[in-house]
Design a protein around this nucleic acid. Structure first.
Lengths: 73, 73
DNA sequence: GTGTATTTGTTCGTATGTATC
DNA sequence: CGATACATACGAACAAATACA
């Protein structure tokens, strides 16, 4: 059955916001802390979710600044 | 076994000073930097300790000014 | 009035340990 | 055993507002 892992659910939720245009290119996505609070997950899980979004090429992370939606073609 | 977390030990130490009257209402508690140095902990741990004291209602923090012991009844 | 130091706020990076499935 | 998930803890960088010399 392999339920979808939590970090992937969180990644999907944020990816949805990007696809729907709620988050647009150059916009910051929620910080790790915000993700923790909003989704009620541990920091590690929040970080893995963001990494997932990076792996999908949807966002880029700038240390100490935040993670931002990339410009798409 | 769950040893008491560091941040809680630090919070307890400062709470003790308040309870013993070493720190009185309106007095500032040690700054985050002071806590780091005095207890040999990282800043994040110092901040968590202070947050713990806030959660207990023992202190209030004023940004860019400090954290102060509340008036108690 | 100016510049420096202090202090809290915020963010991401990394590592370790524990528990569960 | 490996992947997932939680909690703790240290580090680093930068911002912004206040305090002080």
């Amino acid at each position: 059955m392999d339920p979808t892992p939590l970090f992937e659910q969180v990644a999907n939720a944020i990816a949805g916001r990007i696809e729907r245009g709620e988050l647009r290119p150059r916009d910051p996505i929620p910080s790790e802390l915000s993700i923790q609070q909003e989704f009620g997950v541990a920091r590690g899980t929040a970080r893995r979710a963001v990494q997932e979004l990076r792996d999908r090429g949807l966002v880029v992370t700038i240390p100490q600044r935040g993670t931002f939606v990339v410009e798409r073609s």
